[in-house]
Design a protein around this nucleic acid. Structure first.
Length: 463
DNA sequence: TTGTAACCAT
């Protein structure tokens, strides 16, 4: 066009800018803008919105704001879409004060918010854990008759579920149905997740069935949210309940996610870790192993946790050779074992009676720069006690003391029960000094429950 | 000639 001597007009520039924005060619956008301005053209409100969106999507709200202010300076009045775009940029970043400032400006310029505006603000609050503010916006929307879609309901329901306010979330769910808004996967996903985490298994299952009967299939997010609980080590009882739930009441879920994998649904390593762990914990190690191998053959980038999950499962199902192979394969995937991986392997060597090897692996771990944690050292002490290897316990107890860790309750009680046995009495002195009271206690016949609890509290757990 | 949104994270 230019070569033929035709001067591009506003329309031509605008068209090009939109193209460059949507294909992410920022440099070209800037070049076009400069050229445009040099020819005396100015982008209109729609083009500016494209630019705003372009910058916001790349996390550059400050840049976006410059364009917004430039727009006003040049006399181009931002419309509701322009405001919404920038508001969304702020909301995504969690820049709530900037968002509030822009809302004030919007009100000052008599631009009425639409359902995009309110949803964006509602989402920003939900994301920022400002649940009551979100609820307030939600009620305002309803009062003002602004359209409430699945998105609006989804945002509020999810936020309520995250905070365990599942009863309120269920009220919103019923409300949306009464208003003729059809819940989709997001709403079901949030509610089933929420119900599971508060232990309302029956209700969760009921809702899951309802979801399936409506032809809504669980997606990766759904499984991630539900199965996340399987890995939630800190809440053993709830995790166990979920294992039961998944293997029993949620048998449809198991089938469905296997089908999903077969149908080529894209899952990331995060989801795979959870699925592999879920399968392993439900005695489906073979199935998990197959998935693991297919991931390897596809060249999928694995995480050390993927190996740890598999090694744990293989060891627990007695496949020690496979576990060993997997441990040695870690480095060929460009990964290094972490404290959990080493812990499992060392514990297994102790279990096998290969004490030299276990010591060597422990040293290798330290040499590799991997620091033992409290959980691992406690597990090793317990394993040694279980195997009757009391002479080796002292070294690990010393490490626990050196690193200012505490004995876990299960370790303490095992220690007491093992050393109260006659056969181990004479080995008590191999323990660090602070544990010698166990001998005195035995001699004085003080092994009453309260006394032990007192010792545990004052001496062991709080050194 | 053209523009705007959400849920999971070992």
């Amino acid at each position: 066009m230019i070569h033929k001597g035709v001067k591009p007009d506003n329309k031509a520039y605008t068209c090009l800018i939109h193209g460059y924005c949507s294909s992410g060619q920022g440099k070209e956008v800037v070049r076009m803008l400069k050229e445009m301005s040099a020819h005396g053209h100015h982008p209109d409100v729609v083009t500016c919105s494209s630019l705003l969106d372009y910058h916001c999507k790349n996390g550059r709200c400050t840049e976006a704001r410059k364009i917004f202010d430039y727009m006003i300076e040049k006399g181009t009045k931002p419309n509701v879409t322009a405001y919404n775009t920038l508001l969304n940029g702020y909301a995504t970043k969690g820049a709530l004060s900037d968002m509030h400032g822009l809302l004030d400006l919007m009100a000052g310029n008599d631009i009425s918010p639409d359902h995009y505006t309110v949803n964006t603000v509602l989402w920003a609050y939900a994301k920022g854990d400002m649940i009551d503010e979100a609820m307030h916006i939600f009620d305002q929307m309803r009062q003002q008759g602004l359209s409430l879609n699945e998105v609006s309901y989804g945002a509020i329901i999810d936020a309520l579920c995250k905070f365990g306010r599942v009863d309120e979330a269920m009220l919103k769910f019923n409300q949306m149905i009464n208003e003729g808004v059809t819940p989709g996967i997001v709403v079901f996903s949030s509610l089933v997740y929420g119900l599971c985490t508060v232990g309302k298994w029956d209700k969760a299952e009921e809702l899951f069935s309802e979801m399936l009967s409506q032809g809504i299939h669980p997606d990766a997010t759904f499984f991630t949210r539900i199965m996340h609980n399987l890995c939630n080590g800190g809440r053993v009882t709830e995790a166990q309940s979920l294992v039961d739930l998944m293997s029993g009441k949620f048998s449809e879920a198991q089938e469905l996610y296997l089908n999903m994998i077969k149908s080529g649904m894209q899952l990331d390593i995060y989801t795979y870790n959870i699925i592999l762990n879920g399968l392993c914990k439900n005695s489906c190690v073979d199935e998990a192993f197959k998935i693991f191998q297919s991931l390897c053959s596809k060249g999928f980038q694995l995480h050390i946790l993927t190996f740890t999950i598999m090694i744990d499962a293989l060891l627990k199902s007695g496949r020690k050779e496979d576990a060993m192979d997997m441990f040695t394969a870690i480095s060929t995937h460009g990964l290094v074992p972490d404290v959990m991986t080493y812990g499992l392997m060392i514990e297994n060597l102790i279990k096998e009676g290969l004490l030299e090897e276990s010591d060597n692996l422990y040293l290798a771990m330290e040499k590799s720069g991997c620091t033992p944690n409290s959980c691992m050292l406690n597990a090793l002490v317990r394993r040694l006690l279980h195997q009757g290897e009391v002479m080796r316990v002292g070294a690990y107890l010393s490490k626990i003391d050196e690193m200012n860790f505490s004995l876990e309750a299960s370790t303490t009680s095992l220690l007491i029960s093992v050393f109260s046995r006659e056969e181990y009495q004479h080995q008590m002195m191999s323990l660090p000094k602070k544990y010698h009271f166990l001998v005195d206690a035995k001699k004085r016949g003080l092994f009453q429950r309260n006394w032990i609890l007192n010792c545990v509290e004052t001496s062991l757990c709080d050194p």
